[in-house]
Design a binder for these strands. Structure first.
Lengths: 220, 220
DNA sequence: TAGATTGTTAATCGATTAACAATC
DNA sequence: TAGATTGTTAATCGATTAACAATC
């Protein structure tokens, strides 16, 4: 009963690996003019098993050629198509401080199908600033802009205590996917996707590695 | 032959979960005055299985009391001790742009045992700026400062093309743990830990979720 | 053809969950 | 004591890897 055109949902592990393949192949294209790459080459560079590379590519419908490998263009097209980079989704960034500004300036949004249509901040001093061509608006206008542009995705880069109320307002306005950089968990209704970027987990891993390896180095 | 004082290395999954417990319990402490929390309570709030919570806590040596639960203070102490938050490790941030500034301003470093002793940038216009009390220095002084302070960890927040040469210099100066925010992979010798923060993976996941759920919303 | 590489089934491995005895 | 909750062994599940036939 499985419709061939409705592939199984990919989990986060495979999405992350597909992105690794995608970046790797994008870099390789300049170096390797053949237009083909083998699963063993990819696996070697990413320090993983080549079978897993073939499984992942099979899962998104990329067919390889025995003795030749996988077409680099074919691979990149399939990743783009599968992950939605060929669509256009409007997004907003809530919080135009240093982090929001850094995220807004990141060149990647357009490459992955996301168009930042607005930035919001509650600080009047920031309203009117222009970041990569987009003026910062007051957060009071958020609902209006979201509805006007049919925005379904948002990035939250505000202090922890402001995040949950803003998430509630985003969801009420129609946002269904949130990328949360605030150091607090968000409660959202079913059907709303939240990716929480845990800054403190990064710090904890650095600390743990240093402790495990007795790298006290300087200090005390 | 296993020395009781040399516990097994924890993998990234468990480190991440420990951080979730830690934050959850820190928040609960104000709400729940009893001083104890059960594995079932934690599991419920984090939408996971209570057995896994008990396994994780057992792995870091936290003992619970039947019918009572785990001491919130005991749990937090054990996480701090295990992950190294009670030590002090010096760290530097390389790249004092918006992202570097945002990271530097993040309140967490000290809480997790990391002391930011210096920020570096190659742009003379930024040298002399002060971020959370730390003056930005020219990157030419990096090696000197790292050696002087016995720095073993660094955060890289520079453009992609500058990241690898800087990583090489960091490693040559003694850095053994790197948190990389530049959108490029780093090649480092064995024994050097790199945590790569993949901004594009976050974007890809948003795009994929929107595509999977036909949330075209606005645009085109 | 011989041989390199894909594609796929079966085996393994590691992480999670279930079951339940131990404990207070 | 009865009952709630921990601690731990066994079972399950899902992801990864091994093996190898199919292909060009």
């Amino acid at each position: 009963m499985q419709d061939r055109k409705q592939p199984m949902a990919l989990n986060q592990l495979i999405v992350e690996r597909l992105m690794h393949y995608y970046h790797l192949v994008a870099e390789q294209i300049e170096i390797n003019a053949s237009g083909y790459v083998s699963s063993a080459q990819i696996a070697h560079l990413l320090d993983m098993d080549d079978t897993l590379v073939r499984k992942d590519l099979a899962a998104i419908g990329v067919r390889g050629r025995p003795r030749v490998g996988f077409s680099t263009n074919g691979l990149m097209d399939a990743v783009r198509e599968t992950l939605g980079f060929n669509e256009h989704y409007n997004a907003v960034i809530v919080g135009a401080g240093r982090l929001g500004g850094a995220i807004a300036s990141y060149a990647g949004f357009g490459k992955y199908g996301l168009d930042v249509v607005a930035l919001f901040d509650s600080d009047p001093a920031r309203v009117g600033d222009v970041l990569r061509g987009i003026p910062v608006e007051h957060v009071d206008r958020m609902e209006e802009v979201i509805k006007q542009h049919g925005v379904r995705s948002a990035v939250i880069t505000v202090p922890a205590e402001a995040a949950q109320p803003l998430a509630d307002r985003l969801v009420a306005s129609g946002v269904r996917a949130i990328w949360n950089f605030a150091p607090t968990s968000l409660v959202v209704p079913p059907g709303v996707f939240v990716r929480h970027e845990h800054i403190s987990v990064g710090l904890a891993e650095l600390a743990y590695y240093l402790k495990r390896n007795d790298l006290g180095g300087g200090h005390i």
